[in-house]
């Protein structure tokens, strides 16, 4: 890589009260530097009014996702050297979500849809009963395990063109959550899950374009989870039971 002193970083500024407009900063370049480092440098050294969100800085909390050169990414684990376009980077708020201010997207619709997809546990036992043993090698458990490392960063939701075209669509993360619960031996209401994902904007709105799986920073596969829900609802339609 060629030697360079500075990066040209364009960030989108604005929010509900002010139209979004790009603002460009010159940021010192280092050998090891993440996109979140660059955004933090701007906020700490150039313009303290720049708004953005982060917490853990190690790819666990899912707070810092932004659009980087037009692609949704977790910025704390995205090296500048991997995304640099010439000597420039453009950073914006996540797509498909309202903007609170600058780089901070409003996550409410994302989490509201998580609830709408029935993404909550329906217990089989009360706290007074013994804990049910789980077979870790059961096929169902493997299926659930494949989706439970979601960090709710909303990268898949921002990458999804179906969400962009259909505001009712629940999106990949919420549907993958529903699929993990559907395969959880400790979940007592699978019909409620299938009802929720069969409603307006549910799994049947998915066009299987696969951006969710392509962009998930944790390399999860929401596309296959949604296909699983489609199969499960079709099976139930023909009278098949799990």
């Amino acid at each position: 890589m060629p030697e360079r002193d500075h990066l040209t970083v364009t960030v989108q500024r604005g929010g509900p009260d002010a139209p979004m407009r790009p603002q460009t900063f010159e940021v010192p370049a280092y050998d090891n530097q993440t996109v979140l480092d660059v955004v933090s440098w701007i906020q700490q050294n150039a313009d303290p009014t720049l708004t953005y969100r982060f917490a853990c800085r190690v790819g666990m909390c899912g707070s810092c996702a932004m659009m980087v050169n037009g692609v949704p990414r977790w910025t704390c684990r995205t090296h500048v050297s991997k995304v640099l376009d010439g000597n420039a980077i453009e950073v914006g708020p996540l797509r498909n979500l309202p903007v609170i201010k600058d780089l901070a997207a409003d996550m409410d619709p994302f989490f509201d849809k998580w609830v709408a997809a029935e993404g909550r546990h329906h217990p089989t036992r009360s706290r007074d009963e013994e804990i049910a043993p789980i077979d870790p090698i059961a096929a169902e458990r493997q299926e659930a395990n494949a989706g439970i490392e979601c960090i709710n960063c909303s990268v898949c939701y921002s990458a999804c063109d179906t969400v962009a075209g259909n505001p009712d669509y629940l999106g990949p993360a919420a549907l993958q959550r529903a699929w993990t619960l559907y395969n959880d031996a400790k979940d007592a209401d699978r019909d409620a899950i299938l009802d929720a994902v069969s409603a307006k904007g549910g799994c049947h709105s998915c066009h299987s374009m696969g951006s969710c799986t392509a962009y998930c920073p944790n390399e999860l596969d929401p596309l296959s989870a949604i296909a699983g829900l489609k199969r499960a609802t079709a099976k139930r339609f023909f009278g098949g039971r799990k």
Partner: peptide, 12 residues
């Protein structure tokens, strides 16, 4: 007709 029934009608 629900979205799900439309989905099934289209596949069938």
């Amino acid at each position: 007709m629900s979205e799900f029934h439309l989905y099934m009608a289209q596949r069938l």
